[in-house]
Amino acid sequence: MSTAGATIDNGLAQEKLYAAVRSFSKPGKEESPTDQPSMTEETMSSLTWEEFGGKDGIKNYELKRNDAVYLSTISSALAEDEVEAASNRKRLKFREKAAAAVKDKLLELAMDIYSHNYFVAELAKMGAGILSFQLSLLGVQPGEISAIMQRAKREKMIAVQAGIKQVASEKVLFSIVTGAKIA
């Protein structure tokens, strides 16, 4: 059976799968031990599989216990593909949006690494580490992450220089207005 181009009724299939697993692990009160089905032979549940385009209609496949792990894995993989396909179709681009948001946050935090406050600087370092890990999970290249860190440093340098000039300007203005000695 080809999985390409096929869609899977994930919700229904997974519900059935979990229900089947539960029923196997916790036998009902009414059931006697002798009534319990054989683990290897008994059908757990059925998986509803619909061919793409609906040409073949809905097919039901009998599931055995040994298939549970494989099916849960493949269904989650398919669900991920579905999300990706939906986002592409609707031009939502979750991954890009998430990466952009995390990049902005990383830039802010990386600037705080050079803060005069020790605790702020240490927390920012930790936060930047976590965010860079998240970015790597989102598929952002390490070179891009280090470029963000360098950009943060450059921006911080500019901010510090502007801050020093601003303080100097305000200090002299204060001195001019009040007559206070600043030197």
Partner: peptide, 18 residues
């Protein structure tokens, strides 16, 4: 004036870290 001094100190600390 002490506020100005404090601001300068903080900015110099940041410059040192940079």
């Amino acid at each position: 004036l002490s506020i100005f001094r404090e601001l300068e100190t903080q900015l110099f600390t940041q410059a040192e870290r940079l």
